[in-house]
Design a protein around this nucleic acid. Sequence first.
RNA 1: GGGCGGUUAGCUCAGCUGGUUAGAGCGCCUGCCUUACAAGCAGGAAGUCGGGGGUUCGAGUCCCUCACUGCCCA
Length: 952
Amino acid sequence: MPHDLPKAYDPTAIEDHWAAYWVRDNLFAQPTPSETEGPDGQSPFTILLPPPNVTGRLHMGHMLNQTEMDILTRWRRMSGRRALWLPGTDHAGIATQMMVERKLAEEGTSRQQLGREAFIARVWEWRREYGGAILDQMKRLGASVDWNREYFTMDERLSVAVREAFVKLHEQGLIYRGAYIVNWCPRCQTAISDLEVVYDEHKGHLWEIRYPVIDDAGNDTDEFLTVATTRPETMLGDVAVAIHPEDERYTHLHGKKLRLPLVNRTIPIILDEWVSRDFGTGAVKVTPAHDPNDFALGQRHDLPSISVMDETAHINAEGGVYAGLDRYVARKKIVQDLEEQKLLAGVKDHTNNVGHCDRCKTVVEPRLSLQWFVKIQPLADRAIQAVKEKHIKFTPEMYEKTYLNWMENIHDWCISRQLWWGHRIPAWHCSACRKITVARVDPTTCAHCGSASITQETDVLDTWFSSGLLPVSVFGWPDLPGVLKTGAPGPSHLGTWESAGDRADAALSRADFDAFYPTSLLVTGFDILFFWVARMIMLGCWFAADVPMPDGRPRALADSVPFREVYIHALVRDANREKMSKTKGNVIDPIEIVKQYGTDAVRFTLASMASPGTDIAFNVARTEGYRAFANKIWNAARFIFMNVDRAAEVGIKVDSSALGSMPSAAPDDPLEARWIVAELHATAAKVNRSLEDYRYDDAANTIYQFFWGSFCDWYLEIVKLRLDFSETADKSKTHAALTTLVSVFEAALRLLSPFMPFITEEIWHAVYDGRPPEKSIALMTYPPAQGVIEVRAQIEMESLQSLITEIRALRKEIGCDEKTATPVEVRGGGDFRRLSEGNRDIIARLARASELRFVEQISAGLSMRHTPAFDVAVVYEATIDVPAERDRLTKDIARYEKGLTAAARQLGNEGFVAKAPAHIVEGLKKQEAETRLLLEKAQAALSALPQTNSKG
RNA sequence: GGGCGGUUAGCUCAGCUGGUUAGAGCGCCUGCCUUACAAGCAGGAAGUCGGGGGUUCGAGUCCCUCACUGCCCA
């Protein structure tokens, strides 16, 4: 690659190329290791991509998630760890089925018309055609994943794991089937888990209905019991009315019966302490088939359950004259009829939380139905223990509390879904004996009575059941030695692994499992903490425990966990901190922003704002700034290459063996060289430390500061002095300067690479002029944390910078023309004088000083600046702006005096001097002395000012 | 109703186990096209750290309380 970079940085011109190159050359493939040690003896760094839905389109949340994972993975990889980032997609039962059903509707057909098999075939077809979109987007963003290992949760081998998990749990008595109230989505016509219900405040009504009290003969009395309800239509299924046993208003009704209006069923009044006396009328209708609380009540009191709605939320035959009506139509009609019968006591406004289907937003209907459940407590116990014993570390820490809180109040997990797309439950119903056969191998006869008339369960499993198994299943579980009972039918009977190509070998999987399980880290959003993270912990701890360690020992809980750490990232909001939503229309499409500013700039924006625990208000202004940063680097590269080329013309060449490691400086190198090397080491140390703590923001800001603030603003400006290619120049010095320049730059590119992989790759290849030592900068070594930092160079450079800055400020203040160089008077101590004299050329260039005069006293009439180390003045024709100078000095004096007062108060405090650590006291004393000096200088300067305004 | 956060410059955010005069980016003001970069350079203004109380020699940081605000669970 030639050195001539185009003048302007254009991300679109470089990014596509490298994104494709990384994928094509398989740069981030991580083959199955032969032993578990990493290249330098460190354990591997393994991370699973939270699988996006196949139906998904990349949004900002994905991009944040992937940026964070990619930064860590690239960093770990470059730091010598065997890094494996494993990608895949989720079959996403409901979402995908909905997508295809919508398509069928457009074609004028439906899944029912197609039939189950044809429908599933259609979904597979859809998946083949569109399913890869989100991963393609991911490829474009440069995610350094191992594409050879890409999985899909419905892959054969993952299906084997799902089936094994189900059968095993069933054998362990942890799976049961029962009639329970579940959240039912009438649109999707399936049960959904508690987590899939989103609650929304909804302005509704509270209807008060009078239920006639009847006498022993069954005739209405004059009395009524008034109940309050938000869903009057469910009264059709009422089987009782409950009151609090100690509610004095109703004591006389104990043991009485009621006539259920409209239905004319006789129902009892029951007593239960669960009833809240303050809510409504204190009497609550009991509908076990349509409300979870009522269901529990019904069970306690041995009441029947009467379902009055079908799966589409229409009233069924139980509803008599209302049969066939939609639930809301029925509600209207029922209210109307009650009113006509003078049984409506009142209607009040009431705000209640209405559950909606997470997927389609339809109002969920609690419904009694036959479902499959996991008895979760034993799994939860282990998952709680794993976290309490710190086998899994959460960042930010507070999520540990959230997790434990949920885990300790967990309910059994409803895992059946009335869908077609998904893992079909491996259970067979026998029509002869009515019993159920659950098996690893499709049975032909009932295990209980031998009858051949068995049919498979039509329900499929919750999508999260399969994704919850991913940490074990992607590494070959259950086809591992020691897992399946000998003699038991193995998964090979169910499906072959041949289709999975070179991953077919079970021994390889074993090596994979040994090497990569537990994974190192999970990076995800808090929105799936319960859906996914918690389930992985439960299932991982449960199933991995059966896999022996590589040396054959039983696996302890510490090694059964699916990951050792969890990093939970924040939500990406819009610039106004609003949640992004389609309805609000404030969704920022990452791909659009990437097109505008480049992937690197967007990644850097996300990284620099990714402070753990804080939501990110995504502001393109920020991205603009980081595109400018990329441009800055681009131009620094152009400048460096220009000089490398000029050097080459006079026979000065940088030896590329000087590159690729950490640059060092010799004691006799010029100050700026020793300084920039020290800064590079300090920066590398800080960045490594920050990444260790998931402080992407600190890491990004540190690099930004180094690259722009130190390297470009100071070092590059100074090094221009050394790049002397004339005949008379000392070639060895030029060579040394150029070597430092290029090697520091090259190291800085490596430092930046995980954050901005594209621009660094492009420039890095150019540094090597098309002959790089590796195929990618991503395969080079990351600047390590442990470098020796020459502090003296840093202190000296700081002094020099402070002098230069003061001169610049002075020049500005006295209105000195930018281009005019001026003499400068400096008064300072011996060390400072030696330093300044030794670096006259730097001061001359950066502060535009034509001459540096060291004086005992700054000439009268010059406005000057004071620091503890020196006084400085610019010799310029313009005389002092006395009022402005007086103003400034007065403000300074006030500030100094305030500082001195504070210092005196503290130092005069016996407690402080006695108790504060010595370095704090010393520091304060030193500061006090400096402030006193500055105060004296300022006072002297002020009194030296002419009394009148003599601005000329 | 229960739980968990947040409140620092005009905006978006840092500020680690309490320690010297609270930082960054953007924005703003002023001057510069100084041949790497105007997507730039240089200089500058700007905060009683939400209110109140407490602990401490010392509080943006710890505790209590109030206000506002966000999220999760019911």
